[in-house]
Design a protein around this nucleic acid. Structure first.
Length: 512
RNA sequence: GGUGGGAUGGCUGAGCGGUCGAAAGCGGCGGUCUUGAAAACCGCUGUACCGGCAACGGUACCGGGGGUUCGAAUCCCUCUCCCACCGCCA
């Protein structure tokens, strides 16, 4: 058989079978794990691969992330991904633990089988035999009591390593160590030229009385801020603009919970390990609630860093219908970031703050890599369009292996130009994670043949509040310190065309 | 804040110590009939993991975790969530 192409990717081994072989819409080979059907890809098990081998059919192997079977069979590819992403994870150790785990599991299953047989005997046994069966049952129970704790311990270690296994990056992802190796793939707009020294948003905001960082720090602490007056109209204005844009593009809008259970956070990949670690994880944990009996419940909650976890977890544990995919969602939320890994970075101004607003876009898609990449491009196009309508010069970077998260397959950042800071600043980030998150959140769909598969999940920023705010202020500033308003936003701001220093800010009523 | 009632397969819903991976209905799939469709009738129809080339075999799962028992969907503890009514409040 000719292995036409070995691709790196996620999920179960997929096979592509020439359509000429499928004379009917559904050609079914009666085997439990073997379904052949029409379409670009076919979900297959081991049997199917063997079938292909036997009949000389072509197929494409695509990786299966977080599936231990694939890791066992292709340790080389995983090791390469671990290396390229700069992750500290020993795959050999994982495989060793896996082996031990499986052998313990088998012992347990044997004992349980024995136990079940005794139970069956008990149903029909007379009293004289019963005593003996009870003795035997007790003996089996003792053995189980010995093995089970050992298994649990091993299994925990196994899971700890498994959650760190990275998604293998897409073939077009540049290999690199850090953000310096990201590749600029697109650029739009001219950086504005000023016949004066441009101010940064901190000065502009203060002069115009639309941003107060001092009192923000007084009340909110480090990285706290107040947005005021026309600043509020501006910020709420472009949030509303983003929401409308998403609705227009067919994304279902939601205002999502920002206080969520741990599974939503960890399932989306926002925790680095198996459990929350405030030293490394970027999210805030909220003290446990009181339950109705006044007892302290064990489950604490977390503040989301974006609407993404809330949107993705919306369908957690559900089986969707293929005809509803791709599912396009957008969420508006307040976002909270502990910035634990960024101490001392961007300490001034609005660039890096602990809380902000954001409109986020998310797609749940069928398991087709090509199509999911197209959907990712679709989301990026929307972001590009918004930057262009807002008149913000920007460029798009393809993120390299070393700078992308563990679970990501393909990733792009948008960076808008910020003249006052004299640099590009990230205003959007689009990721395709394939089924990496869906496995953790257990979101599946039923395809046309009734097979259940994990969906592919993609996310992208629509607009984040502080950084777009910065970029607008700094790009649209005028010599006299005023700031013009991009035309598309004016209708969301009650017709305000520019923000300038106000001598008398009293409201109408106060004036009267 | 007070008082009750719940959580079972894709959905509705029975079971309340062994014969239960789980009745029944709906939905889905396949078939008969039909020019085609509908109706009617017949059959099939949960998921994950382990072993096996396969046929198949094994184990687990009745919201999560723990316990009692030779044996738990069923009894006990605990957590989470949902519903109803009253009170209070945005």
């Amino acid at each position: 058989m000719s292995e036409s192409e070995v691709q790196r990717g996620p999920t179960r081994p997929l096979a592509i079978i020439p359509p000429s072989l499928l004379t009917k819409t559904t050609a079914r080979i009666k085997s439990r794990c073997f379904h052949v059907r029409r379409g670009p890809t076919y979900a297959m098990g081991r049997t199917s691969i063997l079938f292909c081998l036997e009949f000389g059919l072509e197929y494409t192997i695509i990786l299966f992330m977080l599936d231990i079977k694939f890791i066992r069979e292709n340790p080389g590819k995983i090791k390469e991904a671990v290396k390229n992403k700069g992750i500290d994870l020993d795959i050999d150790e994982l495989l060793k633990i896996d082996k031990k785990r499986v052998s313990l599991l088998q012992s347990i299953e044997e004992l349980q089988s024995e136990k079940n047989k005794l139970n069956d005997l008990m149903k029909t046994a007379n009293d004289s035999k019963r005593g003996k069966i009870i003795e035997q049952g007790k003996a089996v129970k003792e053995k189980l009591a010995k093995i089970e704790p050992e298994y649990k311990k091993i299994n925990h270690g196994f899971e700890e390593l498994m959650v760190q296994v990275p998604m293998v990056p897409s073939p077009d992802t540049p290999i690199g160590k850090d953000e310096n190796d990201n590749v600029e793939i697109y650029k739009w707009g001219e950086k504005p030229k000023f016949d004066f020294t441009p101010k940064n948003h901190i000065e502009l905001g203060k002069n115009l009385d639309i941003l107060d960082l001092e009192r923000g720090a007084k009340v909110g602490g480090y990285r706290g801020y107040y947005v005021k007056n026309e600043g509020v109209s501006l910020m709420m204005g472009f949030m509303m603009y983003a929401i409308n844009k998403m609705i227009e593009r067919g994304y279902a809008p939601m205002i999502v919970p920002t206080l969520v259970k741990e599974f939503a956070i960890s399932g989306s990949g926002w925790l680095k390990g198996l459990e929350y670690d405030p030293e490394v994880d970027e999210v805030y944990e909220i003290a446990p609630d009181k339950n109705p009996d006044g007892m302290i419940s064990k489950e604490s909650k977390f503040l989301v860093g974006t609407a993404e976890p809330s949107l993705l977890a919306y369908h957690a544990g559900e089986v969707l219908d293929e005809k509803d995919l791709p599912l396009r969602l957008c969420g508006y939320s307040q976002c909270y970031r502990s910035e634990i890994g960024s101490y001392g970075k961007d300490t001034k101004g609005l660039y890096r703050v602990h809380e902000f607003m954001k409109v986020e876009q998310v797609i749940l898609a069928p398991t087709d890599i090509e199509a999911s990449n197209k959907l990712q491009d679709e989301m990026i196009t929307i972001s590009k369009e918004m930057h262009e309508e807002l008149g913000l010069p920007y460029h798009v970077l393809q993120i390299c292996t070393g700078d992308m998260g563990t679970g990501k397959y393909r990733m792009f950042d948008l960076e808008a130009w910020m003249p006052g800071l004299n640099r590009w600043g990230e205003t959007g980030s689009a990721s395709n994670l394939l089924d990496w998150q869906a496995r953790r959140l257990n979101v599946k769909y039923k395809d046309r043949d009734g097979n259940k598969k994990f969906v592919y999940m993609l996310n992208n920023t629509a607009l984040p509040s502080p950084r777009i705010f910065i970029s607008i202020l700094e790009n649209y500033q005028q010599k006299d310190g005023s700031v013009k308003i991009p035309e598309v936003l004016q209708k969301y701001m009650g017709g305000i065309k520019e923000i300038r220093k106000q001598k008398n800010r009293k409201t109408k009523e106060q004036k009267n």
